[in-house]
Every structure is written in structure tokens, then in C-alpha cells.
């Protein structure tokens, strides 16, 4: 059983997919960074950023539904920011009486919370489009191009290649566990929590040992093929002038929007 559904890459004949991965990588980082640095309440700029992210989604042909559904992933984290509604000083919007204590929602707090939610939402969309429109080898190429240390890039590559193998391994372990456990829908699973945790821990330990053994075998196979501690790779392909222009235009647009927002809303 192969769990290819773990790979978020979706092959589509789109402009975004065809874009040089290095350009995509840098622009994605720049977009998310711009989003992070935008001041609170710069709503027109936020809407522009949303327009950009939705345009990228449409251009990538991934389907708006796919991206929008997944972009809600970070939503539960908003809970951490909800207290802002009450703690940020500002004009009062409404008061919620809770027992003897009354909580006042302030306009400033609401604006801060909504800004955070919006920023997070738009950033996730762009990250999703990047992940779904860039194959993993392309991502590695982009990482090499931005001069990440070679060791980290090769570790990334190894992790990715063996992730599916070990995920299969984990699924087999879980299948073996469920084959040995009776379960009835709606009833409490058997054993104490301690016991269940110990069993799961055994699976994790098993997975670890297997991965260590596999690591040894992989090393032996690599050594047999001339591995000497240095991972060699092909030189990076040249960047076309179109890619340079795309990169430059994108960066100028993002920096422009950021400066604009800082000028008027900071």
C-alpha cells in the first residue's frame, strides 16, 4: 500500500506549475513575509493581497474549492488570539455579561483579531498553492538555489523519499494492532489509557528501530555506489529572463504594497 495521498503536489497544466521553482519559492516567502509585516487594519491592502492569492489559485488551476477548504486548516489556532477582543483598549462595541463579570468587546480588539485571522488565512492560501504546484524535486532545487546548506537539502531529500516507506510501515503497524484488538462502535476502547499508550509507544519504538536499521542499509547501499559523505548534484539550470522579470515584478509589487501600507496605516 502506498500512501501517495500524503503528497500535496497536484499536477496541472498551469502557468504557476510551469513557473521556475526558484521564482515560486522566493515569491512565496516574500508574499508570506509581506503579509506578516503588514500593519494591523490595512484593509484595502489586505483585500489586494487576497486578490493576489485568489488570482494565483485560479491561475494554478487547483480549483478554488480545494484551496479554500484547506486554507481553513490554521483556523483553530485563532482561539489563541480571541482574548484580544477584550484586552485591547479601545472604544467599546458590546458588553457580554458573564455572571458578575462583564466582558467588553472593543473595536480595536476586534480589528486586531480580524487582521490576524485574515493575514493567516491569506498566507495559508499562498503556501498551499506553492506546495500543490511545486513537485518535491523542484522544491529541493529551489532550496539549493537559495543557498541553504547542502546537508540540510540532502536531509530533506532523504526524508521525503523515505517518508512514504515509513508511513507505509506505520500503517502496517497500526493494521497489525487493530487486527489484534476487538472494537465495537460507540463503546470505550479496551484497556486503560496507560496500556493503550504503552502499546502505541511500542509501535513508535518499533518504527524507530526499523528506521535505524533501514538507515544502516541505505548507507551501505550508498557506500557501495561511491558515497563518501558528500552528496553531489547536477548544476542548477540557468534562470530564463522571463523568470527574472516575473521575480522582479513580483518583488516590486510586494515591496510596493508593503511600503504603501506602512506609509498610511502604521
Amino acid at each position: 500500500m502506498h500512501i501517495h495521498f500524503l503528497d500535496p503536489y497536484r499536477d496541472r497544466p498551469s502557468l504557476i506549475h510551469a513557473l521556475d521553482p526558484r521564482v515560486k519559492f522566493v515569491l512565496t516567502l516574500a508574499f508570506v513575509l509581506t503579509m506578516a509585516l503588514l500593519p494591523v487594519g490595512a484593509w484595502p491592502i489586505y483585500v489586494l493581497m487576497l486578490t493576489l492569492s485568489l488570482s494565483l489559485t485560479v491561475l494554478s488551476e487547483l480549483g478554488l474549492k480545494y484551496v479554500l477548504k484547506r486554507s481553513l486548516l490554521a483556523l483553530p489556532f485563532v482561539l489563541a488570539a480571541v482574548p484580544l477582543l477584550f484586552t485591547v483598549p479601545g472604544p467599546a462595541l458590546l458588553t457580554l455579561p458573564i455572571g458578575s463579570l462583564s466582558l467588553t468587546v472593543t473595536a480595536t480588539g476586534l480589528e486586531r483579531l480580524l487582521s490576524i485571522m485574515f493575514k493567516s488565512w491569506v498566507s495559508v492560501q499562498v503556501a498551499l498553492v506553492f506546495a500543490a504546484a511545486t513537485s518535491f524535486p523542484d522544491m529541493l532545487l529551489a532550496m539549493r538555489a537559495v543557498k541553504l546548506p547542502r546537508l540540510i537539502v540532502s536531509l530533506f531529500g532523504l526524508m521525503w523519499r523515505y517518508m512514504f516507506v515509513l508511513a507505509d510501515e506505520a500503517i502496517r503497524l497500526m493494521r497489525a494492532r487493530s487486527a489484534r484488538s476487538g472494537a465495537i462502535e460507540g463503546l470505550q476502547p479496551g484497556g486503560s489509557i496507560l496500556w493503550r499508550a504503552k502499546v502505541t509507544g511500542g509501535l513508535a519504538g518499533n518504527l524507530f528501530i526499523r528506521s535505524l536499521d533501514r538507515g544502516e542499509r541505505i548507507y551501505a547501499a550508498m557506500a557501495a555506489r561511491g558515497y563518501d559523505g558528500e552528496i553531489r548534484s547536477f548544476p542548477l539550470p540557468p534562470i530564463t529572463s522571463t523568470s527574472w522579470i516575473t521575480l522582479l515584478c513580483g518583488l516590486i509589487l510586494l515591496v510596493g504594497l508593503l511600503l504603501f501600507a506602512l506609509l498610511f496605516w502604521a
Binding site: L155, F156, G157, L158, Y162, L166, L212, G215, Y219, I231
Partner: peptide, 10 residues
């Protein structure tokens, strides 16, 4: 090196 990659996968 391969070991760390595989452990990360694990």
C-alpha cells in the same frame, strides 16, 4: 547522514 534523513521520516 542517511540515518538522520530516515529518522526524520520515521
Amino acid at each position: 547522514v542517511p540515518l538522520m534523513g530516515v529518522v526524520a521520516a520515521a
